[in-house]
Design a protein around this nucleic acid. Structure first.
Lengths: 350, 350
DNA sequence: TTGAAAGCGCTAACAT
DNA sequence: ATGTTAGCGCTTTCAA
């Protein structure tokens, strides 16, 4: 099963391999008659260009490295999916690197990808600070776009969700549904999600209650912290718990249920990200949906731009607006009173 | 920032590029003295082999294509992670292809990967029947290992979980904890998971109750079906619902809660796969954990075997035993009576 | 518009 | 043990 090469197509179509190459890549005009013959020969021989040879010669593999902290993080699979589809649509392939949430591994993976001559890198950095060196070094060698998470200012082009807008959507929604004693359960990290969501809460919560911006508890982005945080915020008798992501929010829901607190009757709970679990929680979680497809598309666009030659335009930093997804966990109390005798939500009755 | 090539290392170390190549790849013995000089030169110049050139010459890219139905299927991320790590440890890289659960797309992705000269393919087929042609064609070109799902008999090497054993573990556990009126909620597909889990249930449930093997409802592997199926099995007054996967089981739990049925007090529920959601459900779901790491390791081993030259040994089909993970959803009724006044499970009190 | 020829950076014969 | 040389299959000058 020896592969068909350009040489054989050339022979079969009676012209030179250069002409065949031109027909197939469309880099130069070829007489229609010749082109047809070449195409027919290629077709009938079942010719498939060898991308490795092409890559060696043209210095472009058509391959993008996708570097992410941990594919098991529930927010990433849908992002990976969209990235894969967006890049495949442009004829590129994705080399996947999972960093085990470890910056050392991340450095290693990035090196490996560069050795494999990826045309560009799409990086979701493990850590705002500890990923920076590796990202900067890599960005000096190939076009690099940061996705979803930042990595210090001005390191590379970046695409991420606008956390500030997202948090504002949550606060507006809570205000509109009569919540006032809101509190925030966040994460103390230095990453953009932790920092920006907290800042946006502090900036916006004052409109609901002058003391709200002070009602803040910081831990990490985990279910466990969500559970623990409930006990810390409950003494302040909040009527809404705004969580910095869905994992925290689901943890909070679990603990609130355990304590017999009615959600959303007594307390509303909101998350951020809209991971699959958000819809499955009970009550289903009101959250902020990141525009996953658009993030992927934008990342692909930025990569394409750099690959097309705009190597040294200014760094571009794109923020995309997320969308509020209202579910049962923040239903207005008036509505929840209607079925206060049951624990299930209106949607579930359908 | 022009890349350093073998040629320059050769010049710097005062020997031929062939010798440098030998030192770096270890394909032939080299005098220690020379080797040291070469290594030093390579080191000081920051030489990195160009894997594309190496691939063109040696006809091996060191790249494996991983083809899967949908990365967003909650069982796959951990599998992808383990595969990535297992292959990376052998110096191979993973080209990821997401098929959108569509056999057409799958065919397309496989073609793309072959064009990119992957050394081998790891395929989780979209569909037992509709993936078969593409898989067979691909298997004729490169080593191919089927992962997690089969694709008809004798098509390629395969690695999967032993569904029969897994289901037996569930039934034994239910028997040991006093359940007798068991029933099964499965899927009607032709895939190995659907078929084998059903068959194992039918084979084993008779030991608990002669009529149990007849109490079977078949739909698909979804939450929605899990919810709907509850209403169909409830009239038979079961004391346990054995589900063919975790999604079905979580759907069942949701519906049971909605109906006010006590789990595990009145009815135990079990799943299969141990997706992340299983541990988060309320009550936490008793399920069968697929040996994800071992599946990945075994797949890597089979690939390595074929790549090492055993091109035409007999097809190998490996089945790995899963593990029962007992959680609250199948706690013995005696225990659940102790806190019958609350809806939460013992674990949650910690 | 086409062809001849020179490599891309490397490995593997084949020499020595 | 080492050097020389011929490509891997393709793209891209350079000529015609």
């Amino acid at each position: 099963m020896t592969d068909v090469t350009l040489r054989e197509v050339a022979r079969a179509s009676g012209c030179s391999i250069a002409t065949v190459s031109r027909v197939l890549t469309g880099t130069r005009p070829v007489r229609p008659e010749t082109a047809r013959k070449v195409r027919e020969a290629a077709e009938s021989l079942g010719y498939r260009p060898n991308r490795v040879a092409r890559a060696l010669r043209s210095r472009s593999t058509g391959t993008i490295g996708l570097v992410l902290p941990q594919i098991t993080n529930p927010f990433f699979p849908s992002l990976v999916r969209e990235v894969e589809h967006a890049l495949h649509a442009e004829g590129r392939a994705v080399l996947l690197a999972d960093c085990d949430d470890d910056p050392k591994t991340e450095t290693d993976r990035i090196t490996t990808l560069l050795d494999r001559q990826v045309d560009a890198l799409l990086v979701i950095p493990v850590d705002e600070r500890h990923s920076r060196d590796a990202v900067e070094t890599a960005a000096a060698q190939v076009p690099l776009v940061l996705l979803d998470r930042g990595c210090g200012p001005g390191v590379a082009d970046s695409v991420a969700t606008d956390n500030t807008t997202g948090m504002a959507l949550v606060l507006d929604h809570l205000a509109a549904t009569g919540r006032r004693r809101v509190c925030f359960v966040g994460a103390s990290g230095t990453g953009s999600a932790a920092v920006e969501r907290l800042a946006a809460y502090e900036a916006g919560a004052g409109a609901l209650d002058p003391r709200a911006p002070e009602r803040v508890e910081l831990g990490d982005f985990s279910l466990e912290w969500g559970r623990a945080a409930v006990d810390r915020v409950l003494p302040s008798r909040p009527d809404a718990i705004v969580c910095a992501n869905d994992l925290i929010a689901v943890g909070a829901l679990q603990r609130l249920r355990q304590l017999g607190v009615d959600v959303p009757g007594e307390i509303a709970v909101t998350g951020f990200d809209d991971i699959p679990m958000a819809d499955l929680a009970d009550p289903a979680l009101t959250t902020v949906r990141q525009p996953v497809r658009e993030l992927a598309a934008e990342a692909a666009r930025l990569l394409g731009r750099r690959l097309a030659g705009q190597q040294d335009g200014p760094r571009q930093s794109v923020r995309l607006a997320p969308e509020l997804v209202v579910r049962a966990s923040s239903a207005p109390r008036a509505a929840s009173a209607q079925d206060a005798d049951s624990t299930h939500t209106p949607e579930e009755d359908q």
